[in-house]
Design a protein around this nucleic acid. Structure first.
Lengths: 143, 143
DNA sequence: CAACACCCTGTAGTTACTATAGAGTCAAGC
DNA sequence: GCTTGACTCTATAGTAACTACAGGGTGTTG
């Protein structure tokens, strides 16, 4: 099948498919005499796997690692589990970060209970005078 | 003061300062005879404001809007509050997304209770066979 | 043959930085 | 005055995961 057909099976765009090929996530397919990409069932399964991982917010690096581990014919899935666990840990961490952020935002928001002149707005004053602790190092790809 | 001094007051890099100037967040400063940027107190206050907003994960667009609103001499802070509230809503939404993701990941993780051959690993099987619902449109800049 | 839908490669853009190259400026010490 | 080291400058490129578009080619249908 051609690239448009493949993209439709995975509910993504042809640009994304080509991108995954450039990134090495999808193997290069055969070509027709007109130089069109020609995909079979294996590519469709691989793309679906990739898209499922993306739906779970896994990064390309994580997906690559899992694909490599899954292809090792003597492989045990312990290492796959480890990648997955790390991803879960990153999600947990990002949730915590955002919850802390939410708390900070709430505190600041409470400083302005009703519309007033900008000179007296507690939010703006807060933004101006905060001793901004530096945002923690970004440990996760999740935004 | 020179750019390195300014950056140190805001605990960021000179590259970030120059970037904010290019992005229009920081006004262009005066220059010395040697073409070095020359900053005063107002720039330091503005940079601090920007860094505080960034510490709260506000996007450049949001910061721009707040700065514009704050500079309107007849301004009331209602519109500032609206920007802020929208940001809070985005944080809430992103937290929800991540919590749903966490649930999906947990369900999948439970499918592999102990290390085994990759062919029988429930995680890998799950990743292969999921009917991936498309990830929801991204409504927030928060990752 | 024309029209249309699709294909191709290459390039650029999004966001918020971060890094580097190559050259210039400035101040302190000898 | 010269050297050295720290800092400054502009320009460019890279990060991640796409997304969009230009300009040209292919294939099918009427």
């Amino acid at each position: 099948m051609k690239i448009g057909d493949l993209a439709r099976t995975a509910q993504c765009t042809v640009e994304t498919v080509r991108y995954y090929e450039r990134e090495g996530l999808l193997p290069q397919p055969a070509r027709t005499s007109g130089n069109f990409r020609d995909y079979g069932r294996e590519h469709a399964e691989r793309l679906r796997f990739i898209r499922n991982c993306r739906a779970l917010d896994m990064s390309h690096d994580e997906i690559r690692r899992i694909l490599t581990l899954a292809e090792q014919s003597k492989g045990r899935c312990g290492a796959v589990n480890a990648v997955f666990d790390q991803h879960i840990a990153h999600v947990d961490e990002r949730i915590r970060e955002l919850e802390q952020l939410r708390t900070s935002l709430s505190v600041l928001r409470e400083r302005c209970q009703s519309e007033q002149a900008v000179e007296t707005c507690g939010i703006l004053q807060g933004l101006a005078e905060m001793e901004s602790e530096q945002r923690p190092e970004r440990h996760t790809h999740l935004g």
